[in-house]
Amino acid sequence: MSLLEIKNLHARIGDTGILHGIDLTIGRGEVHAIMGPNGSGKSTLSYVLSGRDGYEVTEGDILLDGESVLEMEADERARAGMFLAFQYPVELPGVGGMAFLRAAVNARKRDAGKDEVDQLEFVKMVRAEAKNLGIKDDMLKRPVNVGFSGGEKKRYEILQMALLKPSMAILDETDSGLDVDALKIVSEGVNLLRSVERGMLVITHYQRLLNHIVPDQVHILAGGRIVKSGDKTLALEVEENGYSGLGDAA
């Protein structure tokens, strides 16, 4: 059984149709990349998958582990293993990082009928994961995303992914706003999380991210549809010729 199956997905925001029939299947252990020009529906796809309010599915289905998630709220989907690394991580003033991370981990544990995580052990665990990502202790003590640089925010997203261990991770333009060094650190963090148990969907505008996170498959999204799929060389093709090189379909 595939991990994530997107079948003929149509979605709209208000009266505006954005996605017009997307089919995509991601198996465990696979990393897929979605590339596309601005306005092609990339971010909409990430929000529709994660169940954000205001995004309405008008046709088709989304299956996670063979179960439709359409009737599930965003938090239920998250607890079922769907994770979204945000393009623009949101600031939560006054909300302590550790408390937030622990609440997120515990929400999942509760759902799975497991005991909540021990506070001291949790702190140790977070520190260990943070170290891998070059996140300093000081940053863990600050309120969530408040005063973080662009790079710090992205690393913090990957830290959350490491702690929550989702089965399906969606990375929405994780490379945006990163300089070369930060891009490298974040990509290394993501690569550490590649696993035979986990599927990943990497959404990006530029090919450069895919030099660091090498995908198994690349899909080109344009006008709310996948217009072309291929292996990693497809990304290079786009880099060379631009999206317009894809002909009428784009």
Partner: peptide
């Protein structure tokens, strides 16, 4: 903001836990 709420929900917190967390942060 809807952004803050969705961010928390996406991490698996239910809506009430999310509001409580955001509000408690506000009054910290």
């Amino acid at each position: 903001s809807e952004d803050q709420l969705f961010y928390c929900l996406q991490r698996g917190l239910d809506e009430e836990e999310a509001v409580s967390l955001i509000v408690n942060g506000f009054c910290k």
